[in-house]
Simulated scan of single mutants.
Amino acid sequence: MRRHRFAATVLTAVGALLAGALSTTSAGAAPPPAPAPSSFAPQQAADGFWTAERMRGATPLDLIHVTPGSVRAPVPAAVGAETIIGPTSFPQAGGPWTGGGAVVKTSGRVFFTFQGRTASCSGNSVTSQNGSTVMTAGHCVKYQGSWHTDWIFVPGYDNGQAPYGRWSATKTFATQQWAASEDINYDVGAAVVAPLNGRTLAETVGAQGLKFNGGYNKAMYAFGFPAADPYDGSKLIHCSGNSSKDFLFSQDHSLGCNMTGGSSGGPWFESFDEATGTGLQVSVNSFGYRFLPNRMFGPYFGPEAKSVYDQAQAT
């Protein structure tokens, strides 16, 4: 999950920030960039590359914005544990998932190489034509103009162990808006993974349904494998509650949650059944604001997200 950190002068004037949302375009602005490819075929991870030790040591991808400029223009960021600026005594909204059900198998950790470093996110197996589609965040497949490599999905990750195998991506995807300019409103990605032992991902761990254009202000459950303090990436964490629409700088969903870096790409469910661990995926963990701790945001699954899903499932 990413947290936007604003400059000190801005932090002292939160009232001004709340007065109006930032615009992603302006009169007289330069025309939008030419469309960028929305998919990339990375080299499959070498068998044995992602050892238990290497997975435990992967750094959560935590992207930080340091100025209040357009949310469409991320600045270079370090991969590392995030430090939240603001009160830390608020009630915590996340905890280990102990309910069992399908979600413990369909959700998992995502590992990849980013600028020569091993990094991690989260993801979820979804219903698809090919039975091999994983939904995640856009920045978990591409960031700073480069598509991640050595990309694998580890469903049911358990403290360095891969009980259902390590699934190598054959192709990764992102919304056109994320691929072209890393627009935070469209931070949605997907991957198609190769069969393992003659079986597809869905045949092995199952798959969750999805819902697009479902509206806002719904009861939701969010899942992920946060790996930045106070978490260590070893367990599936969840948050639940009534969501709302971001009233600040994006058109994203908002949910009370204290998950940290590494949870990015984990699924948000509507109509989630605790008894069966199933629901309809409507978003992914994406980012948070530095001055608004214990609040997480996820992109709206509209036509852009559906287009990514359709590309992936038809591959």
Rank of each mutant, 00 (worst) to 15 (best):
2 R>P: 01
2 R>S: 09
7 A>W: 10
9 T>V: 12
14 V>E: 14
15 G>E: 07
17 L>M: 11
19 A>C: 07
20 G>R: 15
22 L>F: 09
24 T>I: 14
35 P>N: 14
37 P>M: 11
37 P>Y: 09
41 A>S: 15
44 Q>M: 14
55 M>G: 01
55 M>A: 02
56 R>M: 06
59 T>P: 01
62 D>C: 08
63 L>Y: 09
67 T>F: 13
71 V>S: 11
72 R>E: 11
73 A>V: 12
74 P>V: 08
75 V>P: 07
77 A>W: 14
79 V>H: 08
81 A>N: 11
81 A>Y: 05
88 T>Q: 14
90 F>H: 10
92 Q>G: 07
98 T>L: 08
102 A>R: 12
102 A>E: 06
106 T>M: 04
109 R>W: 05
115 Q>G: 09
116 G>F: 11
118 T>E: 08
118 T>A: 12
118 T>P: 04
122 S>F: 04
127 T>H: 12
132 S>R: 15
144 Q>V: 07
146 S>E: 09
151 W>Y: 10
157 Y>F: 04
157 Y>M: 00
159 N>F: 03
159 N>V: 00
165 G>M: 06
168 S>C: 04
169 A>Q: 00
171 K>Y: 05
173 F>M: 05
174 A>S: 13
174 A>C: 10
176 Q>L: 08
185 N>T: 04
186 Y>H: 14
186 Y>R: 03
187 D>C: 03
193 V>R: 03
213 N>C: 00
214 G>S: 13
218 K>I: 02
225 F>N: 09
235 K>A: 13
238 H>K: 09
246 D>E: 10
247 F>S: 13
248 L>V: 04
261 G>S: 04
267 P>G: 04
267 P>Q: 03
269 F>Y: 15
270 E>L: 08
271 S>H: 06
273 D>Y: 04
282 V>C: 06
290 R>N: 14
295 R>W: 06
305 A>L: 07
307 S>P: 00
312 A>S: 10
313 Q>C: 00
